[in-house]
Amino acid sequence: MTATLHRLSPDKVKLGVCCTLWWNDDFPSIDAGISFGQAVSDMALAGFQGCSIGHKYPSDAAELKAALDLRGLSVSEPWTSTYFTVGRMREKTIAAFEETLSHIKALSGTELVVAEFGASSHLLPVDVFANRPVFTDSQWDALTSGLHELGGIARSAGMKLSYHHHMGTGVMTRADIDRLMASTDPELVHLLLDTGHIAFAGDDPLELVRAHADRIGHVHLKSVRPEVVSRVREQGLSFQEGIQLGVFTVPGDGGIDFRPILEALAAAHYEGWLVVEAEQDPNKAVPLEYAKKARAYLADILGW
């Protein structure tokens, strides 16, 4: 462990895991029949403290909290898709966000994650690179205005809003993220660093950390398989095809070295969730095996 990594101690950061190791929330057909109960038991067995919320989770907050409490888990974040850049969706987006906020408060959570999916190509059976939206200036204005409103709602509720850059969307590349950070209030809009999505997009996750360390409010740690990234780009494949080919994997596997990334986060005195994620086909990649692999890899770097 380096001199700075001690700052990422258990009293400063929490280790979570996304349920996308066990099933896929974007593409429900990518499923091995694993139940909610087995998934959260696997998470606890692998040594994690928390998890994201997925479509197989109980919708009743009391029931979900009891199941997580039983396993010593808490909720790392919920997800809300935003649609500020397309017509007549602002009010619906805000209403959906407020519903999510109410749910996460009932679960004693403090984090909210959003991503703009207006005109996104990631759910479509099309080339994910060639068909992702490029926002106009007016769309950027609509997005930043909407995010400021959501950030204000979150702050008033004592919660933190982080924006998730994502493949196939209008905030996908380093240049997009730079513009979003320059256009938003750091008190209202934080950045969710997703190492896998930025590497898939063709940019360097370490350089992203160094550029925006003071804005990072939440972290998703996932790796990529570079040969699959190249295949998706060269063959014009869809996001779903990339996932099914194994474009994403966990830390400790794939092409990303996480030690310098974690060192950079430690140097910036990051505090919050470090959440392992890998949108893999559970029929090909046994979820518990990969969860344990990631936890062991992080233990080797962090020292705990």
Rank of each mutant, 00 (worst) to 15 (best):
S9T: 01
S145D: 14
A66R: 15
F36M: 03
P186S: 14
E289V: 14
L302K: 00
L265P: 08
R88P: 00
L191H: 02
H269D: 15
S162N: 06
L73K: 01
D127N: 15
F84C: 08
I216F: 08
F84M: 11
N24L: 00
P260N: 09
F239H: 15
K292V: 13
D300F: 00
K92W: 12
D26Q: 13
R174M: 13
C51M: 15
T110C: 11
D185L: 11
L70N: 11
H103Y: 11
M172V: 04
R132M: 13
P186K: 12
R215G: 04
K65R: 14
D194G: 04
L245V: 06
L101A: 14
L274D: 02
K284E: 10
H269V: 09
E241C: 01
V128I: 14
G152V: 05
G252M: 04
V113W: 05
S230C: 05
G303M: 03
M167S: 12
I301N: 00
F248T: 02
V13S: 06
Q139T: 05
A201E: 04
V219P: 03
A291Y: 10
L180H: 06
N24D: 14
D257T: 08
I216Y: 10
G87T: 11
L298S: 03
T85V: 15
S138R: 11
S121K: 05
Q235C: 12
K14D: 01
W79E: 01
G158M: 07
D137R: 13
R174K: 12
F135H: 09
R179Q: 14
F129I: 11
P78W: 01
P226T: 11
V286T: 08
W140V: 02
A264L: 14
E289F: 14
G33Q: 10
K105W: 06
D25K: 00
E279L: 05
D185P: 10
L265I: 03
Y270L: 07
T100L: 05
I53L: 15
L124A: 07
I216K: 06
T20G: 01
V209H: 01
L180R: 05
A296M: 06
H218I: 03
T93P: 06
F84E: 10
H218K: 08
S52G: 13
A3Q: 13
D214H: 08
K92Q: 15
T82H: 02
D214R: 09
A267D: 15
N131W: 11
A296L: 09
H122Q: 09
G37M: 03
A182E: 15
K14E: 08
G246R: 08
A154H: 03
E263M: 08
C18H: 04
R210V: 07
G54V: 04
G118I: 00
R155M: 10
A201Y: 03
R155I: 00
S59Q: 14
G242Y: 00
D11L: 00
H166M: 09
T20W: 13
S102V: 10
L237E: 06
G217Y: 09
E234N: 14
D42N: 10
R88E: 15
I30G: 01
K105H: 09
Q280C: 07
T82P: 09
E289S: 13
A264M: 10
V275M: 03
V219C: 02
G37N: 11
N283I: 02
S59C: 08
L237T: 02
G202V: 02
A32Q: 04
W273M: 03
D204G: 01
L298M: 08
